[in-house]
Simulated scan of single mutants.
Amino acid sequence: MPEGYKYNRVLLKLSGEALMGQNGYGIDPSVIDALAEEIKEVVNDGVQIAITVGGGNIFRGVAGSANGMDRAQADYIGMLATVMNALALQDGLQRHGVESRVQSAIEMHQVAETYIRLRAIRHMEKGRVVIFAAGTGNPYFTTDTTAALRACEIGADCMMKATKVDGIYTADPVKDPNAVKYDKVSYLEVLTKELNVMDAAAISLCKDNKMPLLVFDLTVHGNIRRALKGENVGTLVY
């Protein structure tokens, strides 16, 4: 365990929307740079990090199917959007001196490795950041479910979901000023109270495999390190 840290190996789930910053679409290079700098600090301290990235800043499968597109086809397009985000994130990490590998659930040898669990673990053991792209390679699964699956597969100590709010609330804090933030909440409560942290499949996967989930605010600089050190950042789902 790296000195001063609570976790040795983590899976960081980034939404595609997190990468677009204040833009309404696409990738904001300044966000990539800020993320890369924060990740570099903790990797240099010896923390092993894998990242699952969404594609909502470019294309959402659910939105595509709502507009009449075949759901499976729309989901495949969404998976390809996650590959674009993963490559952009890899470029940012490499420019900051952080060795990284993109592993895709859909084979595309020219730009990414094919996902292999033991190879991903070996990369992390060597101090490389592994970025998982293209979801699970199957339609009808969200990137949240992908993140939960990969976290369990690589033996992560915790799954960290980076959002734009500082944790989980009893209701949507934007819509309800009386919403109260949880410091800790059980997976069962998340499901029964329909707290909309992640989809039910992802929550159930974490619950069944006793994978802790930390939901925290990515927009506050330094929160990744603080969360990894076990400081009171966000909400822990246990």
Rank of each mutant, 00 (worst) to 15 (best):
A179S: 12
R9S: 12
K13D: 07
V31P: 08
T145H: 14
Y140M: 13
P29H: 04
K13V: 08
C158L: 09
H109N: 05
R122A: 13
L228Y: 07
G78N: 14
L236K: 09
A120Y: 14
E153W: 07
A162N: 10
R71P: 01
K13W: 10
V180L: 10
V197N: 05
E17C: 04
H221L: 04
G92Q: 10
L205I: 08
M160Q: 06
S186K: 08
F141W: 07
S65P: 01
K229S: 02
K13I: 03
G56S: 02
A66Q: 14
A202W: 09
A18E: 12
V233D: 07
A120Q: 08
T145Q: 05
M84A: 06
T145P: 07
M1A: 13
K6D: 07
N44G: 04
Y169H: 07
T235H: 11
L87F: 00
F59Y: 14
H96R: 13
M20L: 12
A18H: 03
G155I: 01
A86T: 02
E41L: 13
I106K: 01
K207P: 00
E17Q: 13
M211V: 02
G222W: 05
D172F: 12
G54D: 03
A156N: 00
L87D: 00
V31S: 12
K207Q: 14
A18Y: 04
K175A: 15
L35W: 12
Y115W: 08
V31Q: 11
V42L: 12
N138R: 11
G234T: 11
P173H: 15
F59E: 04
Y76D: 04
A201C: 06
R71Y: 03
T192I: 09
L89S: 01
P29R: 11
E231Q: 06
G64M: 05
I77N: 00
N85Q: 05
E231K: 06
K181A: 07
L195S: 02
V111N: 01
V174S: 12
T163C: 02
L11D: 03
E37M: 13
F132E: 10
M79D: 07
G4C: 04
G234K: 15
S30V: 04
L19P: 01
L87W: 00
L188V: 05
N67Y: 03
Y169N: 11
